[in-house]
Amino acid sequence: MEEPQHRIRALHTATTVTVYQAYSAVIGRPALREGRFPAAWKRDRMTWIKPSFLWMMYRSGWGTKPDQETVLAVEISRSGFEWALRNACLSSYQPGLYPDHSTWRRQLKRSPARVQWDPERDLSLRPLPYRSLQLGLSGEAVRHYADEWTVAISDMTPLAREIHALVDEGDFDSAARLLPQERPYPAADGLLEHLGVSAFPASRRAFRS
């Protein structure tokens, strides 16, 4: 089946969705130990969460870039995730979705979340012809994310290194078998239309928990 140009693909259950972030050990280790973000994690700054594991690997260089050496899987509530989507604005102006550029700028300024649709990546971290969600949180959305939506935090750094080593060896089949099983997210009708996504039928598999 051909992939739509825009789609949320994520590891999810009936009540949660997993997103990825990468931090230095100063942030990552306390977050893993406590199951929540520590005081050193700034709640007054925008933070970007990524449901695509391979896009996180592209952004962090497989967890090797400075201050991105600890790759976290953050399991958050689906209700919180969808609240952010409903209250998000596209990070760039798109004619047809907004009456004019000024209207978009005003909406962007007051929205607690923003969305980018960036090219999905393959195991070689090359761009694919379809796009995946990057969700930026600010203001009240950051506080909800850190203090209310987060269900669990786990360490994906060893897995990132294992998959990276297999890719370097050219063993793409083994690497692919280790990837998180991301599936189309069953977005309700209308949830993403204000973000440039037309409604499309989800596969039956998308609704399995």
Rank of each mutant, 00 (worst) to 15 (best):
M1T: 02
M1D: 01
E3D: 00
R7L: 10
I8T: 03
L11R: 08
T15H: 08
V17M: 09
Q21G: 01
Q21I: 07
Q21V: 01
A22N: 04
A22P: 05
A25M: 09
V26N: 15
E34I: 02
A39M: 03
W41H: 08
R43Y: 08
R43L: 13
D44F: 06
D44L: 06
M46T: 06
K50W: 02
W55P: 11
M57Q: 07
G61C: 09
K65F: 11
P66S: 04
D67A: 05
T70C: 13
V74P: 00
G80K: 05
W83P: 03
A84G: 08
C89E: 11
C89H: 06
L90Q: 03
S92A: 12
Y93G: 13
P99W: 03
D100Y: 09
S102Y: 12
S102K: 15
R106W: 05
Q107W: 04
R110F: 07
R110C: 07
P112C: 07
R114G: 12
W117M: 10
L123D: 02
L125H: 10
P127K: 07
Y130D: 00
L133D: 12
L133T: 12
L133N: 05
Q134C: 01
Q134W: 01
L137H: 05
L137C: 05
L137N: 01
S138Y: 06
G139P: 09
G139C: 09
A141N: 03
V142M: 15
R143F: 03
T150D: 10
S154W: 10
T157Y: 02
A160M: 04
R161F: 12
R161I: 04
I163W: 03
V167K: 03
V167W: 12
D168Q: 15
D171V: 00
D173M: 01
A175V: 00
A176T: 01
A176S: 09
A176Q: 07
L178I: 04
L179P: 07
P184I: 00
A188I: 11
D189Y: 08
G190F: 11
L191Y: 14
E193T: 15
L195V: 02
V197K: 09
V197G: 06
S198K: 13
R204P: 10
R204L: 09
R205F: 13
F207Q: 14
R208Q: 14
S209R: 15
